[in-house]
Design a protein around this nucleic acid. Sequence first.
DNA 1: AAATCCGACAACCGCATCGGA
DNA 2: TTCCGATGCGGTTGTCGGATT
Length: 354
Amino acid sequence: MSQRKGAAMAAVTSSKHEEEMMELRRGPWTLEEDNLLMNYIACHGEGRWNLLARCSGLKRTGKSCRLRWLNYLKPDIKRGNLTPEEQLLILELHSKWGNRWSRIAQHLPGRTDNEIKNYWRTRVQKQARQLRVDANSAVFRDAVRCYWMPRLLEKMAATSAHQVDPAALLHPAHLAGMASASSPVHGGQHDANNALGSGGSSYGHHHQRYPVGPSPSTSTSGSVSSSTSAALLPVPCFSELSWVDQYGPYADLDVGAGGAFDSAALGDLGLDGLDLGPADCDVYSDSTLLDYLNSTCTGDTMMAMMNSGGNAHISSCGAMEGADGDYGSSSWRTDELCQAAARKLGDHQWGGGI
DNA sequence: AAATCCGACAACCGCATCGGA
DNA sequence: TTCCGATGCGGTTGTCGGATT
């Protein structure tokens, strides 16, 4: 083929291609397009998307058709807010697999990789940004475990019709069970609200907005009753976290699931000057945890709190939120708190000596 | 009331992988 | 073995509606 002829043919091909491109529709799908796509799939089944795009009368690419079907039209797509269980599972699986959205989605029946990805980017990464840490960093991952997951578990326990042992919920075996469940993780009736959505976020522009309310397991007074405290969850086994390897001595500070800080153990750590006994909830509520974090709390103390099970801490967070009547609203409500905590933890990590 | 900002989701794009010819 | 089309995946952008100023 001569160069000239080749060029001419290329030009023809190009203009033809452009013509096709000109005809292709982009942007939001219309009802008519959806109907066309659904009808075609009802007759011919899924797959062969390019053929579908050509034969269905849709002026869309095969890719676009596939995406529309998988992310929106497919009958088993689950709608509504992600349940606390699902959020918990996403957090857990993401910590294991990273941004393997489709793999994560396989373990959340009815949820798409796109939805999970958006959730991560809009909710989770937002928190990371506010904490000024990388969402994939160990610091953030651990913060998620220490603050966020307990909140979700608390919510699960609060919304469940049955008695739930929050600690058991976070047990690896339970998570594995959730991940491998073939049936939907949760029914729509429990989509009450989103533990860290922005004030009971909506799902899509056309979906129901759910109300949020104060957590039943928190107290506005700041003190936490023993029964409430029992309903609170221990921070997920912190000794499993990477930091514990780094800060070996703290790993030994296991004061049990009761969550009260063990002053003797703290004394062993040279932290005996700190009043971290069970009454700490009151201490925190008097001055607020934020003040505490910003003033006297050290990174070491933070570590000790977490290793202890951190119930007092979590309770305090709850108390603060309850006092504001803002529990369940966006961004851990205590953005500042989390930032302060992250700073302390960061100080500990950097100062504590890698 | 209008303008602007921001959050959330839908959709697109580019690249990687797979499987058949 | 190579090529090529189909499909899958993850990052990014566009759009819309509610919130805020």
